[in-house]
Write a protein that binds this DNA or RNA. Structure first.
Lengths: 155, 155
DNA sequence: AATCTCAAGTCAATATAGTTGACATGAGAT
DNA sequence: ATCTCATGTCAACTATATTGACTTGAGATT
């Protein structure tokens, strides 16, 4: 977890392009890495990682989400959720309470500390995007969004 | 590996946006998923997965690459490389030979079968990109590339 | 010839992120 | 009383990675 290593050689290795879309394909790969690199380093310093961040991100945007709904949004099994979520509960980054009327479900919310960590981690990612959008201008940013939507929603 | 599951609930969950860049941030996540979904399904049918594809992709574009150089490009440890690479060698998707002069290093190349699988897997990814670029037009595609480069090289 | 170095390979232990299956619990609904 | 439903937990497993320690085989150096 120390990650002092050569940070995955990722200076966009110079590979021969066999197809005209190879450059775009590689950009998707390195783009993901570029966006998450600093956030991951910050999270690692907190003893957390990507799955913890995903939980924090979703709970921040859906306060009082039930565990079942969280599982659906994240698309993982409840057993896979339990470890990272329990860590977040232990560290009091997430708080849970029973629903007042629907006493069967447990509702999740971020604590102040959880909100702070979520915000800082996501800020690292948004900073990278903001700088890229600033360079590209408003029209470039809009075009990027349109292309990404087409890719994301493809089928 | 069967992945018959509900494919990770990934219909871009409707989350409240706390920041104006949240939408972009989520698009990066779902974009990666959208691009790789079909390729991963194809690879799984072949009993392979992402790390195998990364190896095939790099070796296809750097014929006669040595193992040490491959490790650098991939940014992983040799122990992490050995399992997937050995599988590819066993299945004769990758062939290795000793360098003629520099007999210490082992040079890797794709076989015909390896080339075919690499091409098909990457084709799935390129298809998604091509459709998105077609919708966005040449200027949209260029803008996307420019933004992605800024994100990838951010550092 | 003996030794040093270097690329590659392998063994063991560990971490993380996920899976499925089986079962327990506690509360509401019938 | 029992059924259902949301949650929680135990166990066994898989895949992908890590570090450390060591071997092997070939070339280079002394």
């Amino acid at each position: 977890m120390t990650k002092t290593s050569q940070a995955a050689g990722l200076h966009r290795a110079s590979l021969t392009k066999l197809h005209d879309l190879d450059a775009a394909l590689e950009l998707m790969y390195y783009g993901w890495r570029g966006m998450t690199l600093e956030a991951d380093a910050y999270l690692a310093k907190q003893g957390l990682s990507r799955p913890h961040h995903r939980i924090l991100y979703v709970v921040a945007r859906r306060p009082d989400i039930a565990i079942g709904a969280l599982l659906e949004v994240l698309g993982i099994s409840k057993q896979a959720l339990s470890r990272p979520l329990n860590l977040l509960l232990e560290r009091k980054l997430v708080a849970s309470k029973r629903a007042p009327e629907q006493h069967r479900s447990k509702l999740l919310r971020l604590t102040e500390a959880g909100r702070r960590i979520e915000q800082r981690a996501s800020d690292h990612e948004r900073k990278v995007l903001r700088e890229a959008f600033d360079r590209a201008g408003a029209s470039g940013a809009a075009a990027w969004m349109a292309v990404m939507e087409a890719i994301a929603d493809h089928n």
